[in-house]
Design a protein around this nucleic acid. Structure first.
Lengths: 147, 147
DNA sequence: ATAGTTAGTTCCATAAAAGAACTTAGTTCG
DNA sequence: CGAACTAAGTTCTTTTATGGAACTAACTAT
């Protein structure tokens, strides 16, 4: 399994990681979900090198996760926004956040948590099967090669 | 934000990625969820270099995601198993799989899908809030620094 | 004309991953 | 007994990716 041929794999984990499975990509996407859209802002917030940020944004655009949008004519300036494909990564991001808050404590520092915008109550994410309404447990699931 | 200080961040995305956010880790964990426990087997299935696999297994053990277990006395041989903390990554893995199956098509090849072990029906994962039972949408959620 | 803004690119040093061979502590086969 | 085999690594060397800082393009504001 080679990194630059991951996208051809039958395994969706491998294919997914070919898009979001590097050191910086999910952090870039986190910022996108927080409403950050511009190069400078991301670069400063993340402390990523400009070079790498530029490369990641291009790759995410190619993968259809972000789109570049002209927000100013002269000089031409583009900002980056999540596409529907990008927004569809939200459950994964939330699952990661939930796991980290439960299992990777932030060494004495405060942590960021997710609250309902409406009620202010904490969110407690669970993954359920839309068909049955039941919690998805790894014991009840099998993986098969389909189609 | 430096890669080897990510675990101190207030942002759970950063902390989570400090554990699972590199090229190989989630693929190793995928194999663990599939029941693969041994070094040789993982190395062969993944095509990861032995060096890197060894390093990742050690880091996952240190992070409390896997535990090493003696399965043979002479010569001493260890296998790797998911801890509770490791198993808690299942929702994230499933979210990734679901996203990739919907958005990263496997170039003509077949893909692996998740089915109910009981009924054989496909699984349709949705992330809901355990408190309200409602779907978690990124518009309804805010992120705040807590505690 | 000089400085500031924004989104990059270029260059070089350092760190991580690929690839292949070697090691350790045994067991099994002939 | 000795040679081959096994499993889980480690040790090299080469290639690739990332970090860090400076530079560029195409403007606008003072």
């Amino acid at each position: 399994m080679k990194w630059n041929e991951l996208h051809k794999e039958a395994c969706p984990v491998a294919r997914g990681l070919s898009v979001v499975g590097d050191r910086w990509t999910m952090l870039v996407l986190r910022d996108c979900f927080l409403g950050v859209r511009r190069f400078e802002q991301m670069q400063e917030r993340l402390g990523i090198t400009r070079h790498v940020l530029s490369d990641r944004l291009r790759k995410l655009e190619t993968a259809g996760v972000l789109r570049r949008e002209l927000y100013q004519q002269r000089p031409q300036r583009y900002e980056y926004r999540l596409t529907e494909r990008g927004k569809a990564l939200y459950p994964m991001l939330v699952s990661l956040i939930d796991w980290a808050n439960a299992h990777v404590p932030p060494e004495g520092e405060p942590s960021v948590k997710l609250l309902s915008r409406e009620t202010g109550d904490p969110i407690a994410p669970v993954l359920v099967d839309a068909n049955t309404g039941k919690n998805i447990s790894h014991r009840d699931v099998k993986a098969v090669v389909a189609e």
